[in-house]
Design a protein around this nucleic acid. Structure first.
Lengths: 100, 100
DNA sequence: GTCCACAATATCGTCTGCTGATATCGGACT
DNA sequence: AGTCCGATATCAGCAGACGATATTGTGGAC
């Protein structure tokens, strides 16, 4: 679908939420669905793994109500990307939304 | 590099410029470079072909000062994606930039 | 008209990443 | 030990990204 245009958006959403507080996979899936991004676990989980492997997220296992969850938090490197993303978003807004 | 986060941005830039006036490959490369997106011809051209094949862009060959250029213009379907993109951008801004 | 220069576009092999469907995990409860 | 269930993991097939390199097409020089 349009996915190819928005997968980057999804990753930025993930970084952003992970910068607010640790998040786990299933939670993100719901959150993203609320924004109209329908992506399957088969897409999200490998993505989380990669973001962690690449040093943008750190992971911590927790047990909540008998369920194992992996909470992801943003790292310094992740914050750098998020900052860069904000600049790029601002640029996009200037051009595409504000027609400058 | 960070490219995986921003390739969607690049495509949206392309659609946007193509909605203003027909554009050609080499021109886009420069324009994108101005925005800090360094991507090679080997990435851009196949992308243009695909956007055209998928019906988001239409193409017209022109000769300018002895050089063949392929000018791409946005289609109705492309405008639809661009519109959808604007919504998504606005959402991103609300969350990531404005911290809502 | 042949050759050259040059901008622009095209192609290639390889690698990385996306995808939906399906499987597996691990703790709690009985 | 067995079952349930939320959550995470994996797989095979396919699509897309990438840098480097090659090709195209036109106007002008001679």
């Amino acid at each position: 679908m349009f996915q190819e245009f928005f997968l980057g958006f999804v990753k930025i959403h993930v970084l952003y939420h992970a910068s607010k507080q640790p998040i786990y996979g299933a939670e993100i899936l719901e959150e993203l669905a609320r924004h109209g991004y329908r992506l399957s676990p088969g897409t999200l989980y490998p993505t989380l793994h990669r973001l962690e492997k690449d040093g943008y997220l750190s992971v911590e296992k927790r047990v909540i109500e008998g369920k194992v969850r992996k909470y992801y938090a943003i790292t310094g490197q992740g914050l750098a990307v998020l900052g860069e993303s904000k600049k790029k978003i601002a640029e996009l807004v200037d051009e595409v939304l504000l027609d400058k």
